[in-house]
């Protein structure tokens, strides 16, 4: 398996009076080219999980294997892991630091030892993926860009190192509709055209309901549920955790409770519309 977490546990500030549970006994296998969405209330361990995937955190117990290597086995493997697994933090635009978009996006590939011409190719490709036109944006200062553009620059900075896995921590938080569409589209292209594996943390599953193969639900540092996105969304435990489920699921659930027969488990607006149309005809 490309990504394999076995019995991973992690406690923040372990051994101190303010120790706080991060993860407990997490088992998770992620296949090549898979898109997995992660949901859970605040403090459920979503960000902690992501930081284990590229070795920013080291589990107290259990193992993290990437391509069958324990990522903490040696400094060399850890370094390779950091290049293989691109991590996009929450509000990544807060971490932009270079004077131009070009320098910002070069930073990753240069540090991973790409040669001069490879750097340029990587930057151009990354900018194209996120929908930033190279000649128009390369010399801009990140500070003069809009919030949505800044976030795409930050995403391009991670993509330029050419990762095989990309893990994103609430990549659409605080964005408007068109900004969300652009980010989703960029990641969709990476996943569908280049087979990049995606781990996508979100509070709004509707944005990737058609794209995510599986959904992982975390609660208090444990895996509450994991499985095919549709099946997990139909699980009433989600709403009980205070998570937002798609409106199609809420309406379908309400109709079933009123004794209305539905053919399937709709998750999109189109699907629930069709169910209602069939019901009333």
């Amino acid at each position: 398996m490309p990504i394999e977490l076995t019995n991973v546990s992690y406690t923040y500030l372990k051994g101190t009076p303010v120790a706080r549970l991060g993860l407990r006994d997490v088992d998770l296998h992620i296949g090549d080219g898979e898109w997995i969405a992660v949901m859970g209330p605040t403090g459920s361990g979503k960000s902690t999980l992501l930081q284990h995937l590229n070795g920013l955190l080291k589990p107290d117990a259990g193992t993290v294997l990437i391509d069958n290597f324990n990522i903490h086995a040696s400094a060399k493997i850890l370094r390779e892991t950091r290049q293989k697994v691109g991590l996009v933090f929450q509000y990544p635009e807060h971490q932009l630091f270079s004077s131009t978009v070009w320098k910002e996006i070069c930073y990753g590939p240069e540090n991973f030892g790409f040669s001069g011409s490879d750097v340029e190719t990587a930057v151009k490709k990354a900018m194209e993926t996120v929908g930033l036109e190279f000649t128009r944006y390369k010399d801009c200062s990140p500070t003069e860009l809009s919030g949505g553009e800044k976030r795409r620059v930050a995403l391009a900075g991670v993509l330029a190192a050419n990762p095989r896995f990309i893990v994103l921590d609430e990549p659409t938080a605080g964005m408007d509709y068109s900004g969300i569409q652009r980010i989703v589209e960029a990641v969709r292209r990476l996943n569908r055209d280049r087979g990049v594996t995606v781990v996508w943390v979100t509070h709004d599953i509707t944005e990737v309901v058609d794209l995510a193969d599986r959904l992982l639900v975390l609660n208090s540092g444990r895996v509450e549920a994991v499985g095919a996105t549709r099946e997990i969304l139909a699980d009433p435990r989600l709403a009980a955790l205070g998570l937002d489920v798609p409106i199609a699921v809420t309406v379908a659930d309400g109709l079933r409770k009123k004794g209305k027969p539905l053919a399937g488990y709709p998750v999109t607006i189109d699907e629930i519309k069709q169910e209602i149309v069939n019901l009333l005809r």
Partner: peptide
């Protein structure tokens, strides 16, 4: 350039 709330989108559909 806005998307309506999901409930309004469904009602419209």
């Amino acid at each position: 350039g806005l998307r309506p709330p999901a409930i309004k989108e469904l009602v419209r559909a």
